[in-house]
Amino acid sequence: MAGSRAAAKARTHENLLDAATTVFAARGYGAASVEEIARTAGVSVGSVYAHFTTKEKLFVALMERRAQSEFAAAQAELADGFEAAVPALNRQFLAEADSDHLAELGAEAWLYAVRSPAFGVELAEHHRRVQGVVTEMVAAERARRRTSFPMSDDEVGTVATALARGLVQHRRLRPEAVADDLLGRALTALLRGLETPGGTAPGGTAPAGTAPPAE
């Protein structure tokens, strides 16, 4: 019976996330209400709070689920190296940039987070977790290339993430200015430009036995 209860709880959890996706997409973050999400899911308002405590946590859980799915796909592609993963990365980029509700909801959530300290804390924590995964992927790719970067893995991941988010917003306004494969080409150029075999090590320190550059 414990297993049945756990399975039912898991189904309700996923059902609430699906309902939240629908409501947030239709209303935006600010106008979406817990009551409407509960109605859409066919459960009580109390059930929503029992699973997520606050609307902020529900929204972040929704972002976490999407990020986990995307990262699982990206990590599988990256097993064969960054170049092999570029087509998949471009597809993920287009799926967000060309989706009305995904791009707009992301922009609205950022603005709401800036104005609401409570939500800002929740969203910042989500971004830290995402950044951690991106940093791990950067480190794995650097090791695969047997090279070093003049910036830390975390800094490279930050630049790559910011580039992707910026291109999503730019494509929403001027789709003709952002080609379908621009993200992949830009990230490829970024990594190639950063490669410094035998040069500056991650974190900005010179590898052992390497003289510092002349000023």
Rank of each mutant, 00 (worst) to 15 (best):
D80L: 09
D80G: 11
G81W: 07
F82W: 04
E83Q: 12
A84I: 01
P87I: 09
A88W: 14
A88Q: 13
N90M: 03
R91G: 11
L94V: 09
L94W: 04
L94Q: 15
L94T: 04
A97W: 02
A97H: 04
A97C: 04
S99A: 11
D100A: 15
D100F: 15
H101S: 15
H101K: 10
L102W: 10
L102N: 13
A107R: 14
A107H: 13
A109G: 10
W110F: 15
L111Y: 12
Y112C: 13
R115Q: 14
P117S: 02
A118M: 10
A118E: 09
A118W: 05
F119Y: 04
G120A: 08
V121R: 15
V121G: 12
V121L: 15
E122K: 11
L123N: 12
L123E: 08
L123A: 12
A124R: 14
H127P: 00
H127T: 12
H127A: 15
R128K: 13
R129E: 13
Q131W: 08
V133F: 10
V133P: 00
V134G: 02
V134H: 09
E136S: 13
V138A: 05
E141D: 06
R142F: 09
A143Y: 08
R144Q: 00
R146N: 13
R146V: 09
P150C: 00
V156H: 04
T161Y: 14
A162C: 12
A164C: 13
V168G: 02
V168Q: 10
H170Y: 12
R171C: 00
P175R: 06
E176C: 00
V178I: 00
A179Q: 11
D180H: 09
D180I: 02
D181W: 02
D181H: 06
R185D: 07
R185M: 05
R185F: 08
A189G: 06
P197N: 01
